[in-house]
Amino acid sequence: FQRLPIAFFDRRQHGELMSRMTNDIEAVSSTLNSSFIQVFSSVLTLGGTIIIMLSLSPILTILTMTIIPIMFWAMRWITRRTAPLFKEQ
């Protein structure tokens, strides 16, 4: 608002600007709150899953966890090869 010219404020009603600002701030706040809750929930679920897996079968858990870096590497390899093709398309 500080960078907008005075003419911008002259053309719009005060209530319209306040409504837009309030709605935008509420949308950002809602998004940040839900994102924080999702990240916290996901981390907690992942941690709990790993703990339960370790308590049931440590060897199987270690084997499962070794697949994750392999999948990550394969994903990067595929992405690097297909990205130029997507840009070309």
Rank of each mutant, 00 (worst) to 15 (best):
E88D: 14
D10H: 12
V28F: 09
V43W: 02
L17W: 09
K87H: 08
I50K: 02
F9S: 01
F86V: 07
P84C: 04
I67H: 05
Q38L: 08
R80V: 10
I67Q: 10
T66S: 08
M21R: 10
S42F: 05
Q2W: 09
N33T: 03
Q38R: 14
G15A: 10
M71D: 09
H14W: 12
I68E: 01
T61G: 03
L46V: 01
E88G: 09
Q89W: 14
F8W: 04
M75W: 14
V43N: 04
M21H: 14
L4W: 15
A74D: 15
A74R: 10
S29Y: 10
M75R: 05
I70T: 12
D24A: 14
L56M: 07
R12F: 06
F72Y: 12
V43L: 02
R20Q: 12
T49G: 06
Q2H: 14
V43Q: 02
R76L: 15
L44V: 01
T31L: 13
S57P: 04
E16L: 05
I52S: 11
T61K: 03
L17M: 03
M53W: 11
L44R: 00
R20W: 00
F40T: 03
L32A: 12
S55Q: 08
H14K: 09
L85Q: 13
N23R: 14
L4Y: 10
S55M: 09
G48H: 01
P84G: 01
I68R: 00
E26G: 09
S34R: 12
D10Q: 15
A7G: 04
R20G: 08
